[in-house]
């Protein structure tokens, strides 16, 4: 009896591990424990990505529910989610882009080639769909730092008072939208 019990023990342990792994697979491991949820958008004053002389401040964004989507042309997952984000825009979701420049270093690179970046951005958006009302350029990555961005793509859901309600890491697809964003959106706009 004892021996049989011993023989079956590894199987039981393995089943336990499997149950945890299975749950882990669907518990969305990409959910970050961000310190920003429930806080207001940090203050910023940053230039527009596509227009000279245009600047955006945090106060400009207040009054409406919007998604702040951190992205870059260098990021393949961002490209993948553009299509779905564009569909969301067509459904009336306001999406603001926070353009994350991956590899610019002011001490090393000298002047930033704005024209090249704009060309790259507009060619990608015209090809894959443009979900953005406008894009904020965060060249020094200060806002990204304040928000606790750890990579791209990441998306923040912000309400009309400027409170961050959600911080999603990874791409937005129909599954993520249904399970994470849609319930909160419904609460906000009954």
């Amino acid at each position: 009896m004892n021996r049989k019990l011993l023989a079956i023990l590894p199987l039981l342990a393995f089943i336990l591990v499997c149950v945890f792994l299975y749950q882990g697979l669907f518990a969305n491991p990409r959910e970050l424990q961000t310190g920003r949820i429930g806080h207001t958008m940090p203050a910023f004053n940053l230039p527009d990505l596509m227009q000279d002389n245009k600047r955006w401040q945090h106060t400009d964004l207040q009054g409406e529910v919007y998604l702040l989507n951190v992205w870059g042309t260098w990021c393949p997952t961002c490209l993948a989610e553009l299509d779905y984000l564009t569909k969301l825009r067509e459904q009336g979701v306001k999406i603001v882009g926070l353009y994350y420049v991956q590899s610019y270093d002011a001490d090393f690179d000298g002047a930033f080639d704005m024209a090249a970046l704009r060309e790259e951005v507009s060619s990608m958006l015209s090809r894959a769909g443009d979900p953005y009302q406008f894009n904020i350029l965060d060249l020094e990555r200060t806002l990204a730092l304040d928000l606790g961005v750890s990579g791209a793509p990441e998306t923040f859901l912000v309400d009309s008072k400027g409170t961050i309600l959600l911080h999603h890491t990874g791409d937005i697809n129909p599954r993520v939208w249904r399970s994470k964003f849609a319930p909160i959106m419904q609460e906000l706009q009954p």
Binding site: L25, F26, P29, R30, P76, D171
Partner: peptide, 14 residues
């Protein structure tokens, strides 16, 4: 499987 996130910008597929 992406169950533990180590490298970013890598679309993992459940």
């Amino acid at each position: 499987s992406g169950i533990i996130v180590s490298v970013h910008a890598f679309a993992t597929d459940p």
